[in-house]
Design a protein around this nucleic acid. Structure first.
Lengths: 363, 363
DNA sequence: TTGAAAGCGCTAACAA
DNA sequence: TTGTTAGCGCTTTCAA
């Protein structure tokens, strides 16, 4: 089949270890010897066998990326960040779509242990804890992305959900909203941080924290739609909504349109908007972007940074476990609805930017 | 670190090869022996070392998937198909986003050869040929997805672009279009097949094949927008357009809206629409779907089938090289534009389905 | 600066 | 049904 190091060595008239040194560019090799080895490699079309190298050196130069699914652009963008950073270091990435499914996740943990990957970057599902503990018992370097599991002693790279939702809510306050409702996903990580950001912003604005204005549920468009209708029928009126999940926002805004509420004149919207590739396929939210405030998470950077941290762990750093918070970008509405001139509320707030540095380490 | 087969063997009081047989479930092992081995595996938390197994057996149980980028839902859906099929067979997938960039592609080919993957599924870029030939010289099983490179002797799994575009065009004919323009991507694979499908449908309908009605360019929304404007200013009027690329369709339809053309009354549309996850993020095209004819490619099945074929090659089949054509689904418009009652053209054609079987092998 | 020897953990081939 | 032997292709360790 393909040439081996031994064959290269014979052709170059050196020992295998010398070839190894040339290939890996370590140790000292005389320039002339190196040239001979390089020539032999060229002539034989030699390509090093990573499998053999991995077995002996106990480093596979591969990592695993586990995430819910690449069929959603937020996770996809994280995956691109992970892959680009890994590729830059000569590492390969095993892609594992878990669909947040326990059985699938379990099988993937087994596969990645069998493959002896050097590290794992994971968006854990809410049942991942036991597996993550198993990985850690086996000394597997580990970084959590986006979601933080209680009791897991591993670095986390995530967006500043608290600060982002706080700023999103404040932008509605600044636009003169007087009663702000909240629609969001499950109260786990990062959902609970988002709700906390909303609550603190409400309190700071001197508004009443009214649980009748708060609805949470599954993070999908259908639930967003349903929760808006629920709010409309039970809450005592509101003139703004924070929607802490982009998929829910699609349904929620649809519901408002169906109910004949004008955006932002009847109801102002502050929504998460996690689409990163506007030039390819865009979200139904885009049509509303000019009229709503949006919060965008730095998904690509989350991917890159998590791998950068993972490599520090693979490299053996004993830094204490950290949580890396990346700032969320807030975009204010720029236009009024056609036929409805800009209301006082639209565009009056200045651009709100969380003050966190690009990479803030806390805890 | 983690236990080895030797340690399991000692604990169970058998030889390593017996442990190997139990782990891999091959050969005959007495039930009682097997139970002892299983117990030892359990007690030691033994996890087989795939790296060592790969080195010895020359099978890594991994494949590489090379595609332009997972930041586009068409490729993403293919990737899910590939991964799901591979996972079902206990294989891992190395994900390689090439961005259709030569240098990146080159680096990935090197990586995948180093890793001695068992096979490669690839959406080749138009400069991949030399690398693919290198792979084949090294006996690497190979399957092309979606794009077919001239001169590459490898199986291809793709959608029936010719048939799909033929049917798309015929649906416009059936809806009484009299002059049908064409906008599409570069005339490579599969772009040239799409144009051929359009041309043959035009000819069959007895219409004139007028090159002034045909525009091709880069497959992005901006080009779609520009080409519609070009057609409007140069062609002698047309009442329908086939848009053979979904990203271009976004821009093209936008241009028609800007120019005040009503769909489908002024201009009927037949467009590729490669969005597969309507419940997550959908395309701006969705808003127009009720008013246009769409052609959808079976991306997920393309991924699955290509891996199924790849495994046949990995398994050593010497079947002749084949081209697998999957049918494209045509959806007719269901609604009229609000304020414009259904024209004669809308919804008059019956559902057009290419007659190809689920998997048709040609050539 | 270069090399010899050993062995990573497993499986192929053969033998009992 | 079970075991012995050898060795996959490389890197580690030690020596020259």
């Amino acid at each position: 089949m393909t040439a081996t190091m031994k064959e290269v060595a014979e052709r170059a008239g050196v020992s295998v270890i010398t070839v190894s040194r040339v290939v890996n560019e370590i140790g000292c090799v005389r320039a002339e010897t190196r040239a001979r080895v390089r020539a032999a490699i060229e002539e034989l079309g030699y390509i090093p066998n990573q499998v053999a190298s991995s077995l002996r050196s106990r480093r596979t130069r591969s990592i695993a990326l586990m995430l819910p699914t690449i069929a959603n652009s937020f996770w996809t963008t994280i995956a691109r960040g992970v892959e680009d950073e890994a590729e830059a270091r000569g590492y390969s990435v095993f892609l594992c779509n878990t669909d947040d499914d326990q059985a699938k996740e379990r099988r993937y943990f087994e596969v990645l242990l069998r493959n002896r990957v050097d590290g794992v970057a994971i968006v854990p599902s809410y049942g991942s804890s036991p597996y993550l503990e198993t990985l850690q018992q086996r000394q597997m370097p580990l970084v959590q992305i986006h979601r933080k599991l209680d009791g897991v002693q591993a670095d986390v790279v995530r967006a500043d959900s608290y600060g982002g939702t706080f700023a999103l809510t404040e932008s509605l306050v600044a636009a003169a909203a007087r009663c702000i409702a909240y629609i969001g996903g499950p109260l786990l990580s990062p959902g609970r941080d988002r709700l906390a950001g909303y609550r603190d912003a409400i309190a700071r604005a001197g508004m009443t924290d009214d649980s009748a204005l708060i609805r949470t549920g599954d993070a999908d468009p259908g639930t967003g739609y349903r929760l808006v209708r629920e709010l409309m029928s039970t809450a005592n009126g509101f003139d703004a909504v924070v929607i802490a999940n982009s998929r829910m926002a699609v349904g929620a805004i649809h519901a408002l349109a169906v109910l004949g509420r004008r955006i932002p004149d009847d109801v102002a919207i502050g929504a998460y908007h996690d689409i990163a590739t506007p030039d390819t396929y865009s979200s139904p939210l885009d049509a509303y972007s000019p009229y709503i405030t949006t919060a965008t998470q730095p998904a690509y950077d989350m991917g890159r940074l998590s791998v950068r941290r993972l490599f520090e762990r693979i490299g053996g750093t004993t830094d204490p476990i950290e949580e890396f918070l990346l700032p969320i970008r807030i975009m204010l509405p720029t236009l009024a609805v056609p036929g409805h001139p800009p209301s006082e509320r639209s565009g009056t707030a200045s651009l709100v930017q969380p003050e966190a540095p690009t990479v803030a380490a806390v805890q």
